[in-house]
Amino acid sequence: MNRDRTEWAACGKTYSFADLAQACEAAASASLSDLPDILPAAEPSEAFSKRVERLHRKYLRGLRLAQFGRAAAGIALALLLTFSAVITANAQARNAFLAWWQRTSGSSVAYWYGRESDAGKTGSYQLSLVPEGMQAVRRTESEGFSSTVYEGSGHLLVFEYSGGEEAGAFEVFEAGEGIPVEVGGLPGRLFAENGRISLIWMDEAASVVFTISSDLDVQTVLQAAESVKGY
């Protein structure tokens, strides 16, 4: 946090940052002074509770990716250039994909899609080709969301998918808009950030967003992505 240390003058007096902080603290506390001792219990709707659950998942994913980015730091970003030849894209697929994501704020980009879905319950998916030497060490599932962590040979790979209405995908990147790719004919994007390769792709027909984050090389990540199958 930045702090403005400049003193502030008004009415013939000079106030320091600490003076303002103290006065603001008193003002903040005063705003709640008329609260009753016991607040009535909130009774949010079921839809609201589901939104909170989704937000909680978003929080956990953000936490996980942030930790992952730090853990994988040091892997060369140049990997991306090496494998640019395997990336294919066409304008139609890219445009379809771009229509799905939403928010850009400053240097960070949040990837989401939110839309009405008539695809019903989200199916189950898994990697049919797990990178050599890796195995699943954790699997988390809840309504419309699945996360599997693979670990081995000093590497990590996280495969996630979410579906249904307001499905969310990657939370924050600071690696620009990524590179358009196709995964099994589906539009996607590839990002490289702090030694982490991140891939997002979407099956619009099934209303599912898939993501893989890994410190493995791009080709291995793409191969793993291509191997995703429903079961």
Binding site: M1, C24, E25
Partner: peptide, 16 residues
């Protein structure tokens, strides 16, 4: 009140 409180009590920047 709120922007002053966020700035001086919580120490958040304008961007935050």
């Amino acid at each position: 009140q709120d922007v002053l409180i966020l700035r001086y009590y919580y120490g958040y920047s304008a961007a935050e």
